[in-house]
Design a binder for these strands. Structure first.
Ligand SMILES: [Mn+2]
Ligand SMILES: [Mn+2]
Ligand SMILES: [Mn+2]
Ligand SMILES: [Mn+2]
Lengths: 231, 231
DNA sequence: TCGCAGCGTTAGATTGATCTAACAAAAGCC
DNA sequence: GGCTTTTGTTAGATCAATCTAACGCTGCGA
């Protein structure tokens, strides 16, 4: 139906809009960086996707998804996250090894397969990185979370997801002994250089804002990240 | 490492040589029919595969696999049959639906994945169609079997595989109530038109040679298809 | 052994996805 | 408002995989 390339473009636009708060369009250069191709390549491709009715776009304008494009992009994300869950839960892959393989599996085209896999995994809502798995109809349960970077001092949080899937990040995450569902207490944020002091596993740790801004947390008590009244 | 196309060519050459008795080379036209492309396309591709050291070939000559080409082709077959086993055993797909999906999954490139999948499935030796699954090192346990078409009258056989993966064939197979591991008794072969009379599930059935030549059997008593002394 | 049918190759074109280099528009800044 | 930086487009090229149409080999049968 759609080529790998087309699927990758739609998936990327979904990730840069649907899964990005308060954003519903994206520029050509941004997409080029994200997809690791040159802007000229993106210009050609968005013309094609517009011709197919999958995105809204005009010369020198931003790109946004049509209803159809959104559904197709979400379907790729759905497959990606289901396969990640399979690799982690069933094949016991470490969670930092699954993303790369899922990049290939996400393009396997069979809704029957996707739905049976979903059932086989017990209809998971979130993948091993804590990201929401879109349902077959395109609906999503957005987790109610905030970045560790923006956490409030003295508050206790629970890690529910990470947003960087690079090997470097995930290895560091592992090496620090962190895990999804672990609790961390935010101690203090250094205003000068942004370094964060956190309490984890009884030890105090200093982490960079770059690291912290890739970690999603919820309030450890009520489970809500925003508008939390648990102090 | 290798493109889908290259993998498909190598897999096809494996199927037309390694898995074909007494054949170790194949012509351009044969390959073209098998791959459903034009001969000119195959000519181009075999030049490329030769340049990469994967096949032996010269102008106007036949194609055969080098050791490296053989291994790569077998690896694709291995992945194909492991995925078919997964789809059938774990996701409960009917065995006539799995081939098409495995055509896509066979190209996922991760030996770690392949080997974990193998373990997850319990290191199966044969796929749901009864075909041997090549091992990671390229070795194969060739099943000792014959075509139902060539079966000896009055002998009792057990179906262990089919060689046609088309929907038409598999549906007919299902509709007749046949299954892998079922026993059938060969009654008589009509010399004039080749029709076979078999006894299956207490009923006598007449089947065409075209149908029968896609069904592999072994002797129901000793498990050996050739040189069987069980009369 | 010669001719021809079938097998295989070549040349030239197409399509999709990508690039570089040069250029054009839009945005941002004084 | 005009200059500069950022953003985006165009033209032209490349590479892989395919096709069609025309042509070249080869081996089999008479
Ligand atoms: Mn992808
Ligand atoms: Mn994920
Ligand atoms: Mn294939
Ligand atoms: Mn099979």
């Amino acid at each position: 139906m759609f080529s790998f390339t087309e699927e990758n473009y739609l998936k990327s636009i979904v990730q840069l809009t649907v899964f990005e708060e308060g954003v519903d369009e994206v520029g050509v250069n941004r997409l080029a960086v994200y997809l690791d191709v040159k802007p000229a390549t993106v210009t050609d491709m968005v013309k094609k996707l517009k011709a197919k009715g999958l995105i809204n776009y005009q010369r020198y304008g931003k790109v946004s998804l049509t209803e159809e494009g959104r559904l197709i992009g979400l379907r790729v994300v759905r497959k990606h996250r289901l396969w990640e869950t399979f690799l982690h839960d069933k094949l016991k892959f470490n969670w930092d090894q699954i993303h790369e393989i899922a990049e290939q599996l996400e393009h396997v085209n069979s809704s029957e397969l996707t739905n049976r896999l979903d059932a086989f995994l017990g209809f998971p809502e979130f993948d091993p990185h804590g990201d929401a798995i879109p349902r077959a109809d395109g609906s999503i349960t957005m987790p109610y979370r905030k970045l560790l970077n923006e956490a409030v001092p003295d508050q206790l949080y629970r890690i529910i997801a990470v947003s960087d899937n690079s090997n470097e990040f995930l290895r560091l995450f592992d090496e620090m002994g962190l895990n999804i569902n672990d609790e961390v207490q935010m101690l203090v944020r250094n205003d000068y250089d942004g370094l964060l002091h956190i309490l984890f596993n009884g030890k105090e740790r200093t982490i960079s804002p770059k690291f912290a801004e890739n970690i999603y947390v919820v309030c450890a008590k009520c489970g809500k990240a925003k508008a939390c009244n648990c102090n």
